[in-house]
Design a binder for these strands. Structure first.
Lengths: 231, 231
DNA sequence: ATGATTGTTGAGCGACCGCTCAAGAAAGAA
DNA sequence: TTCTTTCTTGAGCGGTCGCTCAACAATCAT
């Protein structure tokens, strides 16, 4: 349950960060690029560091994860972290962006594009959620759903950001269901918005259930029951 | 969605607090009690203070609510708060206990005891959740579901406490559904545990949806769709 | 009156928060 | 080599965290 529509658009260079991104936009063409950078090379692997940060934010949430927690898990001192990622908030946003393009974070969008029917797509989404959310190879549930539910007033923007991602997903659901009704897959009296809200509700509930210890088998049964509401 | 079975049992006097509780267990019988206390009377109304604390914890969660936030909203200085309620954690636990006995927090337990059929009980629970969770007279959603989802390692106990309340409710759901199957209301092939998990999932999802801005009308449609999965 | 009891107050404790910065280290460029 | 560039390091900034405490205030008991 995360961004179904990946907005890799403007981005408006935050301030720092984004140093190890560009591989070779200049330098002619043929060579496989990766011309050695200029100064001292970083002592950390950016991808691994982001994975460690993702794990922490996913497990505890934004505010409950301190910069000390992050530097310890990422194996770097505060100065390096701030030079590489900007500030805590920018790091979190980069984590969320990366999560949205990962298999675990983008499974819903993938199912929507790959499945020919709406029912096929949403059945697959619910069943994959049941398998992914309690998977022990990562923290339980969905990062976008659970990482910024308890925030103080000064970090309300983070909460709003994730909320907008969630509500955006629900809108994408509704869009797909409207199309299904137009194409005759759903009966004319079906209510796409209501069905989208229901499916989002079940998915978000499944994330919470996984965090409360529900197993993949538990959630699979929930998914099958949820599908019985299909018009 | 909170404690369906109210455990007003042992309690084991925390440390401080509980001062304004006993009204008149001694002093004979007839008089309407409330014999004046001994020392200086409190300058605050305990119920009002708890309501203010409840609102804050409900809205932002346990860790995101600071003691400064609490003292400001409750109209008292730190010393008074600690003398009256113990510490922040004890205050939160008292808030949760009180929430569990309030109409908003106990509606599920009430429906389970008042409705003769399981379907009647769970239909009422879903419909009342749809009306209560987005009610603007209090913070959105359910305090037990959303007040301790993001906590640091040192407050994991709070998270565990609320999780146990949630899972306890699911067990009460399953118990009611097992009875319904035994009594023939549900077919023999029905799976009470699975149905309980599904209903808990929908309810927890509805709480999240309410916090994301879903209206009572939105959630009412979700509730009706969810009920279509009933065996 | 005086003492006992209970509650309020304001100052402030140690710990941790997010974050910064001068100094040093490791690389390519000259 | 020396310069420039990039990254790391360790110390530590101001601020907020949860919480405590001595002094004072308001009530009942005597």
């Amino acid at each position: 349950m995360t961004d179904a529509v990946e907005t890799a658009g403007p981005k408006a260079a935050p301030k720092a960060a984004e140093t190890a991104a560009a591989t070779a936009p200049e330098t002619g063409s043929a060579a496989p690029a990766t011309r050695p950078r200029r100064g001292r090379p970083p002592a950390f692997d950016r991808t691994e560091a982001l994975s460690a940060a993702t794990r922490l934010f996913w497990e505890r949430g934004y505010e409950a994860t301190s910069v000390t927690d992050l530097t310890t898990a990422m194996g770097m001192r505060p100065g390096s972290l701030y030079a590489a990622f900007g500030d805590k908030r920018s790091l979190f946003e980069e984590v969320v962006r990366r999560y949205g393009t990962s298999p675990v974070g983008a499974f819903a969008a993938v199912a929507l594009t790959e499945e020919p029917t709406a029912y096929g797509a949403f059945a697959r989404i619910l069943r994959e959620a049941a398998a992914i959310y309690p998977d022990p190879s990562h923290p339980a549930g969905c990062l976008v759903i659970s990482a910024a539910t308890n925030v103080s007033a000064q970090d309300a923007g983070i909460q709003d950001h994730l909320r907008e991602l969630r509500n955006g997903n629900t809108r994408v659901f509704a869009e797909r269901l409207r199309r299904a009704r137009e194409e005759g897959e759903l009966p004319p009296e079906a209510d796409p918005e209501a069905l989208a809200g229901y499916l989002a509700t079940v998915i978000q509930g499944m994330s919470q259930q996984a965090r409360d210890g529900a197993t993949a088998a538990d959630l699979a049964r929930t998914a099958e029951l949820a599908l019985r509401a299909w018009p």
